[in-house]
């Protein structure tokens, strides 16, 4: 049984302008100890998926369709009380802009200890602090900095503290939403390396969410490319990056400057992403697609298998 199976998930938001279809018909699965990366540009729905998995959608958001099976149990069917145990206990999240996720007027050690005590009151304060000590060792923060306040930490240390907090209850699944966006490249590299090691050591399933292909490529076994609320290509990392099939994946890869290989002209994707309150009929990438054919704008595309485990949402590739 997979650790997580998401089937045909659709999520929308009530907004002033109308009903926004943020995520539509997304399905994927994650095995224990594996990692999955979602890449897409702003507004593609990747963060919404993360929030839905945590049961933390904002009040104007709702799941209109689909199932989220975690260890075989549908998270959309269980009580809020049960969900509260699973959230942080079994599924933890590293939020975007983690620098702001710490309480500025509480010592870092107390914040993490509190999270531990909330989920296992039997541990007691002293026991919780012992656990924090271990966690800091794991994520590489010196012990003598435990009693500091968040403002005394550098950006990288705050990020490590946030990772420590995510690990605190020994979760089975961690969702990392842009975990390194605000960090400098050297610190980012250290944090990603650390994360990979922790994942292996504790056999944690991970979902990485980022707009930055290179980060996701670095840490994920499987990759899902998202565009305008839909998953458009899905497969093993090597497959998706070395032989991409969906025109959007190809376009995204060739719009990204690298330091390896030849310095070739970047191919920007013309146009802008569609409005998801009135999504276009047919394929959503059709307007910007260099290979669009008559009919792409009318009929919704269906999933096509490229090779075992590698599939794409496009007729023509």
């Amino acid at each position: 049984m997979a650790l997580l199976e998401v089937e045909n998930l659709s999520i929308g938001y009530n907004t002033k302008g109308g009903y926004l279809k943020a995520v539509e018909g997304v399905s994927f699965a994650l095995e224990e100890g594996q990692s999955l990366g979602f890449v897409g540009e702003s507004g593609c729905g990747k963060t919404t998926i993360g929030m839905a998995l945590m049961g933390l959608l904002p009040s104007n958001g709702s799941i209109t369709q689909g199932r989220i099976l975690f260890e075989g149990e549908d998270l959309l069917e269980i009580s809020e009380k049960k969900m509260r145990q699973i959230r942080w206990g079994k599924i933890a999240m590293i939020f975007q802009a983690a620098m702001n996720a710490l309480n500025p007027v509480q010592r870092v050690v107390d914040q993490i200890a509190e999270a531990i005590m909330t989920h296992s009151p039997a541990v007691g304060k002293r026991g919780a602090i012992e656990q924090v000590k271990d966690l800091f060792q794991i994520v590489g923060i010196p012990q003598e900095r435990m009693r500091d306040y968040p403002h005394q930490y550098s950006g990288g240390m705050k990020q490590r503290a946030i990772i420590a907090m995510a690990l605190a209850c020994r979760p089975k699944l961690i969702i990392a939403d842009e975990p390194t966006t605000a960090l400098d490249v050297i610190v980012q590299d250290q944090i990603l390396e650390e994360t990979k090691n922790l994942q292996r050591e504790f056999n944690i399933g991970m979902i990485f969410i980022s707009h930055d292909i290179s980060i996701v490529a670095d840490v994920s076994h499987d990759i899902g490319i998202m565009y305008a609320g839909q998953l458009v290509e899905y497969g093993a990392r090597e497959e998706v990056f070395e032989s991409p099939v969906h025109p959007y994946t190809k376009a995204l890869l060739s719009s990204y400057p690298t330091i390896t290989g030849d310095r070739s002209l970047l191919q920007p994707i013309p146009g802008e992403t569609p409005n998801l309150i009135y999504p276009p009929d047919g394929c959503r990438f059709c307007d910007r697609c260099p290979g669009a054919k008559p009919g792409c704008g009318e009929e919704s595309p269906v999933w096509v298998d490229v090779s075992p485990g590698h599939k794409t949402l496009c007729y023509h590739c």
Binding site: Q190, L192, S214, D218, F241, T258, I259
Partner: peptide, 26 residues
């Protein structure tokens, strides 16, 4: 530019280049 990327001489530049995630070139 190309020389800095392909044959950086300063240890700091080298550390920066080490840290950049490289993809598509396993």
């Amino acid at each position: 530019g190309e020389e800095i990327i392909r044959s950086p001489r300063h240890p700091y530049t080298q550390a920066l280049i080490d840290a950049i995630p490289k993809f598509g070139h396993s």
